[in-house]
Write a protein that binds this DNA or RNA. Structure first.
Lengths: 340, 340
DNA sequence: TTGTGGAGCACAATCGTTTGTGCATCGCCT
DNA sequence: AGGCGATGCACAAACGATTGTGCTCCACAA
């Protein structure tokens, strides 16, 4: 790798002139055209490419954005990361992707590392229900954008789906088919997506004159394990259940397995609606009816907000929330309640 | 963010002493215990964390590794990236993940960017069949490790699956059930995974006394589109086909769709075997029998090789190839040939 | 008393950029 | 001829760390 100094020597000028020539500051600093072309030629010959590390140090601009997701192998987060990466790359940024393994502790460690690397912005799909560490970083001057899993009481810029509206649509789909006893496989309580989906669900139930039965709400995480366990118990505790509303794809997959194990056929014996779409869901054993989030858009907006926030006054952004529309994909996992 | 200088001032010492105190070089440079603790205290109070950018510049060590994959939304690559990220993080490295969008041009741009950022190593799942740009980077001093898609004639360190052996197992599965006319939905010709799978397929056929019919081999990419189109044509061109061997999960999914559209039931009318596993494949409409690659292991080994190569003499590594074992997951997508 | 050696630190160079400022030289006007 | 404004560049200071070397003081021995 050749340095600016070498270029300058080869062109017979000083480093400063070389720098300015290559950066288009020639006019401003009265450098003759002849010199500029000599420098450019030298740079070409030496295949000069400026050290990003050095410029980062000098300019206090690393061109890095950090992305922290709970589980990169989950297609939902992989897609968000991809979308962020593509948006960021388009603006000359690179993204450091970090996997928090669904552990808050690890998330905190990763965030520290990223801060030390002086990423210019962070997009985080947080684990857990605490946001103080995130807010601290934001106050510290590194803009933090929350994606997907957001928090109700939190002054950070957030982008997420219209969970309430999505849940309303999903539940209506079920009530319209006569379902009255609907089990809910929820994700992590306390997170905004979860709580808003619950609220949407309750609202749609009320519309149909059904009172929400708290004992039908189970689960404590967005994982498949939580979905499976909760569904299993729910199906034995409440044999009168005719439908399940799963708050994530892993939850729904867990539910499917549980249904299989308990000998229920979907959708004949049990209807299932999911949240989030996943690749090839239409080719599933039970093509899953689901509330589809627009992951690409979430990623794009998140990246956009993050980069927009770079350089604005110390994370002073007002609390902004972006809610991306959801749409329901109806497949063959729900049916009408059988007259019994 | 506080700097070393501020720490030094607060502790009443020079920057050099501060640096050495914090880095454990106290004994070597005869710094008194009293001073060391004064410095540490000051560092604590100021919440000092060294600028990685500055140390990178000085030490010529960025602690970054670059990962380039063709499509992050593909669970296969997402999992590899995850595995690399986790391994790298464990050793204090951060990974920059870049998505080449299956375009060689873009891959080259990304690699340049990563080189400019002075990543210490690169793990690349390359697009296309050219490797010269990769070799150049490797000669340039940044170790390059190829993962998954490797090249036969190429002096780079490579880690991939035992494609040949995997393909042999898969094809035997079919021939054992009496299949003689087997369509192949291949990926990108010229890539080692593809060509070795072909070779394994041919070998297994020969064992059963079947001569390979080139016209049964279709497809030009690992994408779903390629799988779908090829399967579609194959099924009309050669109605005598009883089985399909797809060289990737997307290929297999394309095949499934094509089968659906042509009214063939899997596995009754058509058997399908895939390559690569994908999440929830067991819950698919047609639970896919597949040759499963150990993505985690691939990622781990790749990360390991990459980090191991850091600092060794200028990419002078001998050509090493690591082949990770595959295993076949038998699900319900193949059946015996019906007597006709 | 002078010399020697070690203990404890500070100075300054360095990594590769960017950028504010100073110093010539030249032409032109008065 | 002397002054003045361009013009074209070089010098040097940053950015924030690490590290080789030099300086000062003190104790102790000769």
């Amino acid at each position: 790798m050749s340095t600016l100094k070498q270029v300058a020597e080869k062109a017979g000028v000083s480093v400063s002139v070389a720098s300015r020539s290559l950066n288009g500051h020639a006019k401003t600093y009265r450098i003759s055209d002849a010199t500029v072309s000599r420098v450019k030629e030298a740079a070409d010959k030496l295949d000069f490419r400026p050290s990003q590390t050095a410029r980062s140090l000098r300019l206090k601009k690393t061109g890095l954005v950090g992305v922290v997701v709970p589980d990169l192998s989950n297609p939902f987060f992989a897609s968000i990361s991809q979308s962020i990466a593509l948006s960021a790359e388009a603006e000359g940024y690179s993204v450091i992707v970090a996997d928090s393994r669904e552990e808050t502790e690890h998330e905190i460690r990763l965030l520290q590392q990223l801060e030390d690397r002086q990423v210019e912005a962070l997009v985080v799909c947080p684990v857990g229900t605490q946001s103080t560490h995130l807010q601290q970083i934001n106050e510290g001057g590194t803009p933090v954008v929350l994606a997907d899993r957001t928090f109700p009481e939190c002054d950070l810029v957030q982008v997420t789906s219209e969970h309430r509206a999505g849940a309303v649509k999903a539940t209506r789909l079920l009530t319209a088919k006569g379902h009255r006893v609907i089990g809910v496989l929820q994700g992590l309580p306390g997170t905004l997506p979860n709580d808003q989906r619950l609220s949407g669900h309750a609202e749609a139930l009320k519309e149909s004159g059904v009172v929400l039965d708290q004992s039908l709400i189970r689960g404590n995480n967005f994982t498949e394990a939580s979905g499976f366990d909760s569904a299993k118990k729910l199906l034995t505790d409440r044999p009168d259940i005719t439908a399940l509303f799963a708050f994530s794809t892993p939850n729904a997959m867990g539910a499917l397995r549980a249904a299989n194990e308990s000998g229920r056929h979907v959708p004949q014996d049990l209807s299932i609606v999911g949240f989030d779409d996943s690749p090839y869901a239409d080719l599933m054993n039970v093509p899953l009816t689901t509330v589809c989030q627009d992951v690409d858009k979430i990623g794009q907006i998140a990246a956009d907000l993050a980069l927009r926030a770079v350089g604005s006054s110390k994370g002073r952004k007002r609390k902004t929330r972006h809610d991306v529309k959801t749409r329901v994909i109806v497949r063959n996992s729900i049916s009408s309640v059988r007259d019994s």
